[in-house]
Design a protein around this nucleic acid. Structure first.
Lengths: 192, 192
DNA sequence: GTCTATAAAGCGATAGAC
DNA sequence: GTCTATCGCTTTATAGAC
């Protein structure tokens, strides 16, 4: 018999920690909450993350970036059919953010003071997203400058949709906004 | 001689408290920070705000709502020239948010857990903004449904511009996004 | 690798002197 | 109305038993 619970890799604890950070924010997620969310004691958490909360958040953001890289960014960059790729992106984003019910940790951290400690990760995430989307539009014949504008508008628009739908307590607003962002991108492709 | 400092109205402390909340968030703004920001001792703060931090935030949000009502919402609702009113709104918004260097407290609180305590104020703020903008567009001849869509897109887009420009550490992105939002609204008016 | 116990610091909030 | 001192609690982080 091994101990009660053995996690050979700290990565197994990351999803629960991520959800705790998403729910309470960086300052609001206390170690007690993070312990409760992950089912681990403080000793175990510090064994995996000697740097404490900051190292946990760093690892969480890294995993989020990895997930987006494979599920969102790569398909955009390698798209055969740009229009289909954009529709797939919006569907994936809607699923990931639970239709507006889940916060974007990257965007949230960017607003906060804790931003300074994770600025590189946050900036890289959004820069890659915009670049991947712009590349997809260009592959569909959209002029470089126009593609960059539309990509920037769309990524900002998705963040705005998350903020607004949560503020209004209205997830249907998220769906409406995302659908109109999708149409705007498809229109840009159609006009090219 | 009176005491060192006498504030006959608690409203005089609100701007400093607001800036402290904007910088550190609700959880992050400790009483020590709020004291330092306002130049008041804890005793004085509790004299003005017996309900503590929550009452301070409530008063701050109420003052923000008042400011927007007179500086942003009312001009939109009473506009003679919708296009001019929209351009004025974007200029006022850019000034208020320091060109992307200042966070929107309403949007931020909406993302956080503290939202539950201020949901009414946050929801009211955004609902009034969207309604005022839609009304302005309608007064310019835009169809009701289209006006509502464009208003929703624009308010979400402004929040997205704040999130994205902070995340990228690039205030120029805010300026670009706001300008394109302005053009989209003017186009909607021109098409009507 | 897991846990509990503990330390030191900071938190929100209150009491009371002036 | 202002301040300082203080309460009780929670926080992050560490130490050590198992």
């Amino acid at each position: 018999m091994t101990a009660k619970r053995v996690l050979t890799e700290r990565a197994q604890a990351l999803p629960a920690l991520a959800e705790c950070f998403r729910t309470h924010g960086f300052e609001g997620a206390s170690l007690s909450l993070l312990c409760a969310a992950s089912g681990l004691g403080k000793g175990s958490l510090y064994n995996f993350f000697p740097g404490g909360k900051a190292e946990m958040m760093e690892a969480v953001l890294a995993q989020i970036d990895d997930w987006f890289a494979q599920a969102i960014f790569a398909p955009l960059e390698q798209a055969d059919d740009p229009a289909t790729a954009i529709t797939a992106m919006m569907a994936a984003v809607t699923a990931y953010f639970h239709g507006g019910g889940r916060v974007c940790l990257m965007g949230w951290i960017g607003l906060s003071n804790a931003r300074d400690g994770f600025a590189g990760q946050v900036e890289g995430y959004f820069a890659r997203w915009i670049a991947a989307l712009a590349r997809c539009l260009k592959s569909g014949g959209v002029a470089a400058q126009s593609a960059m504008r539309h990509a920037e508008d769309a990524v900002a628009g998705m963040q705005g949709a998350l903020v607004l739908s949560r503020a209004l307590g209205d997830q249907a607003a998220f769906t409406r906004l995302i659908e109109r962002l999708r149409m705007a991108l498809l229109d840009a492709l159609a006009a090219a």
